[in-house]
């Protein structure tokens, strides 16, 4: 018995979301009275730090240069066997999402993807996740001997509970990959939306793409990531990976500032799990106010520049 956590490291780096996953795995292991073992695949910088987040052992499988769900599934399945793991935990990220289901099929395991709180092991094994795009929470019971979970970002804060450990090499068979990666384009410097803690988002109220300067400036001052409503992406005002909502990215940041967005139900579905929502809209009847913690009724072209100045003042006073 043990809990195996796959700590993904695209580009060799372990991100905060993965530290959350390892924390989740360590707490799950503690609840089950067993050990948490971490697995990294490919060149990984500073994998030993996972010990701090509760992994009692950290294994690395070297010699893998790119992501391929088929290849990674084989490697993880072999690690499951070697470590005798009965709970396997991944991150609900883009690569995690292509592994969770695969691994479940490989291990004939019950799986729940995108869990948002620790399992209840007081009688069976139960986990919760948001369903219907955040409009409800479902509790699942998993009955299989092996269980596979993926953890939704921002569900649990990373917590240091131990010390760094030596990384041990794990010898596993590495199957050939059928994928040839031709190009990887990443935007450096900005936190990707699914991981962002602060998000500044704008909608059709902006009137046109030429007005986005104030949105970018506000995001810059805050160190936030920008997002948009769907029509804005559809009209090509903003890149489509910024579109949040039921058919876009679902996010759960600490702060979501919605500017010139009406708050249609499909938009809310992707953002209603945010901890704090601020709405800036000139229409007092805008449905978004009902979902907001703080509201500003006014013209965004006046309000946003003022907000930027206030944040700057705050920054200057608090640095």
């Amino acid at each position: 018995m043990s809990v195996l956590v796959f700590a993904e490291s695209p580009g060799g780096k372990i991100k905060k979301a993965v530290l959350e996953t390892v924390t989740y795995a360590a707490k799950t292991a503690a609840a089950l009275g067993t050990d948490c073992i971490a697995l990294t695949i490919g060149n990984t910088t500073d994998a030993g730090q996972l010990g701090k987040y509760g992994a009692s052992k950290v294994y690395n499988v070297a010699g893998v240069s790119h992501f391929d769900s088929q290849m990674f599934t084989s490697i993880i399945a072999e690690a499951v066997q070697k470590t005798g793991a009965d709970v396997v935990i991944l991150t609900h990220s883009s690569s995690g999402k292509s592994l969770t289901g695969r691994l479940a099929a490989r291990l004939n395991a019950g799986c729940v993807s995108g869990v948002n709180s620790l399992p209840d092991v007081s009688g069976g094994f139960k986990v919760k996740k948001n369903v219907f795009s955040g409009k409800a929470i479902a509790q699942y019971e998993i009955n299989s001997p092996v269980k596979v979970l993926s953890v939704m970002g921002n569900s649990i804060p990373p917590e240091e509970s131990g010390a760094a450990v030596e990384v041990e090499a794990m010898d596993t068979a590495i199957p050939a990959s059928s994928i040839t990666v031709k190009e990887v384009k990443t935007v450096d410097g900005v936190v990707p939306l699914p991981e962002a803690e602060l998000v500044v988002s704008a909608g059709r109220g902006m009137k046109g793409p030429e007005n986005w300067g104030i949105i970018e400036e506000l995001a810059n001052v805050l160190g936030a990531t920008t997002a948009s409503s769907r029509p804005v992406a559809d009209m090509g005002w903003r890149p489509h990976h910024e579109h949040v909502g039921q058919t876009g990215v679902a996010i759960r940041p600490n702060l979501y500032i919605a500017i010139g967005i009406s708050g249609a139900i499909q938009h809310l579905a992707g953002v209603n799990s945010s901890k704090v929502i601020v709405v800036i809209n000139k229409d007092p009847e805008a449905p978004f106010f009902k979902a907001a913690d703080y509201g500003v009724q006014g013209d965004l072209f006046d309000v946003v520049p003022r907000l930027i100045e206030s944040f700057k003042k705050y920054k200057a006073a608090n640095n």
């Binding site: 088929q70 999402k97 969770t100 289901g101 695969r102 099929a105 993807s113 995108g114 795009s133």
Partner: peptide, 14 residues
């Protein structure tokens, strides 16, 4: 968009 699993495709493949 109801259960937001993103699982079935990966399972078919496996």
């Amino acid at each position: 968009i109801d259960y937001n699993g993103a699982e079935v495709g990966a399972m078919i493949a496996e």
